[in-house]
Computed example of a mutant assay.
Amino acid sequence: MRQVWRDFSLSTGMAGLVAVLVGFTSSAAIVFSAAQALGATPAQMVSWMWALGIGMGMTSLVLSLWYRQPVLTAWSTPGAAVLAVSQGVSLPEATGAFMVCALLTMVVGFSGWFERLMGQIPLALASALLAGVLARFALDAVGAVVHAPALVMAMTGAYVLGRRWWPRWSVPVVLLVGMGVAALQGQLHLSSIVWTWALPVWVNPAWSWAAMVGVALPLFVVTMASQNLPGVAAQRASGFDIPVSPVVGATGLASFCLAPFGGYALNLAAITAAICMGQESHADPTRRYTASVTAGVVYIALGLAGGTIVSLMAAFPQALVLAVAGLALLGTIASGLSAAVKDEQQRDAALLTFLVTLSGVTVAGVGSAFWGVVVGGLAQWFWTRRQAGSH
């Protein structure tokens, strides 16, 4: 623990805080919608926040300390979207489906199947995948200028100046400037935050084929394809060789234990993890794990105070969150694009992967990250075979 304190810095701490801010505020509303669609009571919705906060916090904290590398987990946002549109499934039946999904995640994780699949994806395609996933946030930040021009332009100016004179502190400076401008405009409502402790509520799981087919399998597929896949890509593109099998298996184990309390699906983070793994977190890659450790501690605190999440979401204007996320990820996006187009033989396939991923297209309930890899991988395979056949 003494080594952790020596490795910790203000920049990694701020990176962890920004990651949590972006993670919660960007998709917490979808999680609430999912809980409501399944008939959860207000107390059970608070329990969901407790379970997800504890799950994300403990897995991020323990795995980051164990591997001394930035491992950040998250709830399955596309999984929550699947749950939000589910019909005719009760909360107990959905809870049983959560546990089955977690068991499937444990199997493909601990068995090494998912890691072997990831081993077949070239680094150029993985980098393009990451850049495509993150570029959407940068575009959202640009779009936020329309709704809050003064706020976003002030934050952009702070980023430009920060990158010029204080590159390591550019993101914290952006956040502080954004909070200051939002406060002057009356858009920051910190006084409205109400701190209340969360209590876990147990839901007895029930089993039905309808829930297995309609909830468990779609939840598993979208979580693996749209969350874990770009999560591993983010790690590799950032230069971290984190063991895939035990980490993915651990998220499944945590999900299984927390499913009766509302922990529907945990997975590797991609967008928020990139904030912790980027150079803005710390110039020394060996010390960036303290950013995800910080995020883990904050996640646990927010999970314990799950009743505060709604008021916390309302405290920050959406434009501020979008601008912080987009600006914090610019360096990682540039690195991903650079690695994607570096190899001329893989450049075209990598660009296809980037464009399909950036499009945000969803087919059969599976997000664009999966289809980007499929399209780019098939194109690279076809072109490689053509070149081999011509010799």
Rank of each mutant, 00 (worst) to 15 (best):
R287G: 02
V142D: 09
A94F: 04
G180P: 06
G262N: 06
L176R: 06
A128I: 01
A305W: 14
V222I: 03
V71W: 01
L190G: 09
I275F: 11
D284S: 03
S359V: 07
Y264R: 04
F8V: 09
G296D: 01
I333M: 14
L83R: 04
V363W: 15
R2P: 12
W66S: 15
P78N: 09
A138T: 00
S226W: 00
C101G: 14
D140N: 04
I193D: 00
M153E: 07
L302C: 11
L21Q: 07
T59N: 06
R136V: 02
H147Q: 07
G23C: 14
A40M: 00
V177S: 02
T308V: 15
L83N: 01
V62I: 15
A97K: 10
A340Y: 04
W197P: 04
A51N: 00
F240M: 11
F354I: 03
A301C: 09
L65T: 08
S208V: 01
T384W: 14
T196E: 02
V297D: 01
V324D: 13
P122G: 05
S170K: 03
I309G: 03
V298K: 00
G119Y: 14
G389C: 03
T308N: 10
Q3T: 10
L322C: 12
R164I: 06
V107L: 15
P246D: 11
V247Q: 07
P92A: 06
G367H: 08
S335Y: 13
L21F: 14
P42I: 05
A102F: 14
M49D: 02
L63C: 08
G360D: 08
S238Q: 03
Q187C: 12
M99S: 06
P243L: 03
A97H: 04
V133E: 13
P149A: 07
L229V: 06
D348I: 14
V31T: 13
V142F: 15
L351P: 08
G214H: 04
A206Q: 03
M14L: 08
F24K: 03
A84Y: 10
A43K: 08
A182N: 02
S238P: 02
G331K: 03
V213L: 09
L129C: 10
V298E: 04
L351Y: 12
S390P: 08
R287S: 12
S311F: 12
Q346I: 10
A265T: 09
G303F: 04
T105K: 10
R168H: 11
E344G: 15
H282W: 01
A319D: 13
Q44K: 08
Q185Y: 12
Q36Y: 04
A37K: 04
V89A: 01
M49S: 10
A369R: 14
D241G: 10
A301L: 14
Q387V: 14
S255K: 07
G180M: 07
V89M: 02
L175P: 02
L330E: 11
P167D: 08
T25D: 13
L176Q: 06
W381G: 11
G109P: 02
T362W: 13
R287W: 02
L312W: 15
W209Q: 01
G303M: 06
A182P: 07
W75A: 07
R347C: 15
V310E: 11
G162S: 12
G263Q: 05
S226T: 05
S170C: 12
Q227P: 01
A154L: 07
G88S: 10
L161V: 07
S27G: 02
P149S: 08
H391T: 15
V341I: 09
V341G: 10
T286L: 14
I121W: 12
A15M: 13
V20I: 13
D140E: 10
M155A: 00
S64V: 06
